Simulated assay, not measured.
Amino acid sequence: MRIHHLNCGTACPLGGALFDGRSVGPLGHIVCHCLLIETQAHGLVLVDTGYGLRDVDHPHAVPGKRITIPWRLMLNIRLRERDTALFQIEALGFRAEDVRHIILTHLDFDHAGGLEDFPEATVHVMQREYDDATRPQTGFVSRHRWRARQFDDVVSWRRYGVRGEPWFGFDAVRDLDGLPPEILLVPLPGHTWGHAGVAIRRPDGRWLLHAGDAYFYRGEMRRAHRHCTPGFRAYQRLMEVDRTNRLSNQHRLRTLSIEQAGAVTVACAHDAVELERCQAGMPL
């Protein structure tokens, strides 16, 4: 098993270091950290997709915009073909049909935009996330976060309820249909009710947990006291469905990242420094 760390979406919101903690100019740098997993018997497995080719080509086509203009302006999203998962996978010498499975942390527009670039893949997601994303939307945030045009052509879904098998003190969904036992879904509600992390056991026995949007900033993990930039703190509060669950799961992840540092690496979806260190094979 080999894991590639990809950036499948870039945003440059006004605020600079107030978002990413390091920019010196007025614009921040936010990524969409996705994983490409090479398996021996199950083909390629993609964890989240970021933005896709249709987002790049027609982000605001009507009816049913793939990305809403207010969110694109707020985040200053840079839609580029070279950032898409398909472009990067082809650059590695693979084809779209080699991606046999896609596992989603959740169905927000910046995580699911590339689903339709891989029409032969089976898409794995929590049942609650699928239900919430496909029902009629009424709330302001839900109307912007879940964009049906990004996934209405998906034909092969696998949906999972919450099961109680333990994984480092967390409930975990094991035995994902058609996937190796080294890959698990770890429910982490709060950002959305159906939000989940994806845990992968690497050949050396250590685990990598892609925590999705359970946290946004590197200072929220691997230290006793949480530190988050004002921009990311505000965005997390804007997008949460339940603060108590979000903060509770974030605290549990922080404890895991400290107490099991030798066994588990925890990474989120949007911190550029974490992505760079993962790509370089450096500890977080």
Rank of each mutant, 00 (worst) to 15 (best):
R163Q: 14
T39N: 08
A261M: 03
G28S: 15
D108R: 03
Q279D: 02
E182D: 15
D152S: 12
T122L: 11
P63F: 05
I89Q: 04
R149A: 07
D117H: 00
M126Y: 02
A121S: 13
Y215V: 04
R252W: 01
V241K: 13
D20A: 09
W167I: 12
M239F: 14
M221T: 08
G231E: 10
H144T: 00
C32W: 00
R80P: 06
R78Y: 06
D177L: 10
D177W: 13
C268A: 09
T10D: 12
R174F: 02
L46A: 13
D20Q: 09
P189V: 09
G194R: 06
R222L: 07
E120I: 00
L104D: 00
L75I: 00
R22L: 11
G139V: 04
R243K: 14
R201S: 07
G50M: 04
M239V: 10
G25D: 14
L238S: 00
L44C: 11
A121D: 07
G113R: 11
A280L: 15
D152Y: 02
R128K: 12
V173G: 01
H124N: 12
S248E: 08
D55Q: 13
F87L: 00
A280C: 14
D57G: 02
D177Q: 14
V45S: 11
Y235V: 10
F151H: 00
D153W: 06
G219H: 13
R2P: 02
G64I: 02
V264W: 03
A112T: 05
I77A: 12
G212F: 04
M239P: 07
F118W: 04
Q260N: 01
A199G: 08
I67Q: 02
G262I: 05
A91Q: 11
V186D: 03
I67D: 01
H60W: 07
A267P: 02
G164L: 08
L79H: 06
R277N: 09
P203T: 13
A133I: 14
N76K: 10
V173A: 11
H227Q: 13
E259M: 09
D20C: 05
I3P: 07
H58S: 07
R163H: 12
Q236W: 04
I183Y: 08
D204W: 08
G219C: 12
H251Q: 14
W193L: 15
V99P: 00
L18A: 14
E259F: 01
A17V: 05
Q250L: 15
P189C: 05
R223P: 01
R2A: 05
L209S: 02
Q279A: 06
H251M: 12
A234F: 01
P136L: 07
L115G: 01
D242H: 01
P136Y: 06
C228I: 15
I102H: 08
D98V: 06
W207R: 11
A148Q: 07
C34A: 12
